[in-house]
């Protein structure tokens, strides 16, 4: 039987299949919207939510390089989210010497960073949190959250974060914040994601005191 079109049927079928899959996925995908406040009801920024179950393999196109810049004696993006296997570089954009280090279990390293020498990077090959400091400027502090999966996000100034494209179903996630107790970090939160729209999950975090070394200089008191 002669075909009514000159187009080969295979691409059309593939195209239709892809659309079906795409629309199907959208139709059955929701999002997790977490809102975090502290005990005083204030929004908690820079908290991380990572879905730990079910585990999905990392997609092939996930970026595996990232950087944590230093400008004006501070880490510019002091909370960086990466996946396992990412190489992180520490470009020193100051005209002075920094000496970046970490004692963390997830990665121990030390990088003396002379200005202009920004090529060295660190491979983060274990999930966990890498606390980064500078040996020259004790007040400088950064955190790199190394996730096992790509399903993670950090909260903004309103204490909100969104993890999109989650097929409907039950999930377990963890919440991390630099000032959260270890027992609260290891706690699993369970949620059932609906097949469309955002599933809201409000949580109150009990944060410890903001303990960091101050940057302001001490006096130069002298008495001749």
């Amino acid at each position: 039987m002669p075909s009514r079109t000159h187009t080969s049927p295979l691409p059309v079928v593939l195209c239709l299949l892809a659309m079906q899959l795409f629309c199907g996925a959208l139709a059955n995908a929701g999002a997790l919207e977490v809102t975090l406040v502290d005990k005083a009801g204030k929004p908690v920024a820079d908290a991380v939510v990572e879905i730990v179950s079910p585990v999905v393999p990392l997609p092939a196109n996930v970026p595996l390089t990232a950087s944590m810049d230093q400008i004006d004696k501070e880490f510019v993006n002091p909370l960086l989210l990466v996946v396992v296997g990412t190489r992180v570089s520490f470009p020193n954009k100051d005209n002075i010497h920094h000496h970046v280090y970490s004692f963390s279990e997830a990665k121990t390293f030390e990088l003396p960073l002379w200005t202009g020498n920004n090529t060295k990077s660190v491979l983060l090959d274990k999930p966990g949190v890498v606390v980064v400091g500078c040996n020259v400027h004790d007040w400088m502090q950064g955190h790199i959250y190394v996730a096992a999966t790509q399903r993670m996000a950090k909260s903004d100034a309103r204490g909100k974060l969104l993890i999109p494209n989650l097929p409907a179903g039950g999930y377990a996630f963890r919440i991390w914040h630099a000032r959260l107790k270890a027992s609260d970090i290891s706690k699993l939160h369970n949620v059932v994601i609906e097949d469309r729209g955002n599933t809201a999950y409000p949580a109150t975090l009990e944060l410890g005191r903001d303990r960091r070394i101050r940057r302001a200089p001490s006096g130069l008191a002298r008495d001749y």
């Binding site: 101050r214 940057r215 302001a216 200089p217 001490s218 006096g219 008191a221």
Partner: peptide, 16 residues
């Protein structure tokens, strides 16, 4: 005895 308060990132005030 000295008390030293940060006023900004790069300024502090001390009383001793």
């Amino acid at each position: 005895a000295d008390v030293d308060l940060p006023l900004t990132d790069d300024t502090s005030m001390g009383l001793g």
